[in-house]
Amino acid sequence: MSIGDNTAGPLLAGRGLVKAHGRTEALRGASVDLRAGEILAVTGASGSGKSTLVHCLSGIVRPDAGSVTYAGLRLEELPEKRLSELRRTDFGVVFQFGQLIPELTVLDNVALPLMLAGTDRGRARSAAGEWLERFGVRGQAELRPGEMSGGQAQRAALARALVTGPKVVFADEPTGALDSLASEQVMTALVHTAREAGTAVLLITHDAQVAAYADREVQLRDGAVAPLGVTA
């Protein structure tokens, strides 16, 4: 089976995920499937376990119970180093903010994942420039992240997440700190590029307008996927 084969079941599957932070149970048996090329929105109230779910599915944290399978690999069985490599090559991660290194130029920030994968800096910067062009922020390439608007910085962060050609992008409230116009620009850029590249997107949001960009939506309530029709 090749990674991304749409007919062979989900590309990424979380089953019965349980995760506690101290005495607080963030996830209580959540199960989610993500198919190749699909855009899935995970919605829910604050504290419903959305971020913890994305952390478990992307291998950032290990669940206390349950399993995460990506293209036949059981993530909980992989060593930390392999998980880190997976996040660098097969996954792209976008947070509300913080993923761009403030001291690097935007161009170097986007080139960084390629450099980490062994691409020489010149070629990495050249590829990064193309991705910035695609997201409409080529003109800001030599600026530092702090010198850009929030929307521009998020589009640069998306370019960084997609530059390695990942199979899955995890976007945790990518528009959480943006106004509606910037949100729209970021979401349009993400959806358009993901569709073009056949990248699956797991989108965490509490905003119904943002969730509307997805092919499918699941709701989390109290750490578990709520039955259809039940609102959080």
Binding site: H55, S84, R88, T89, V93, F95, Q99, P113, L116, A161
Partner: peptide, 8 residues
Amino acid sequence: AQAAAGVP
């Protein structure tokens, strides 16, 4: 965030 994004 860097570590989460895969920077070793």
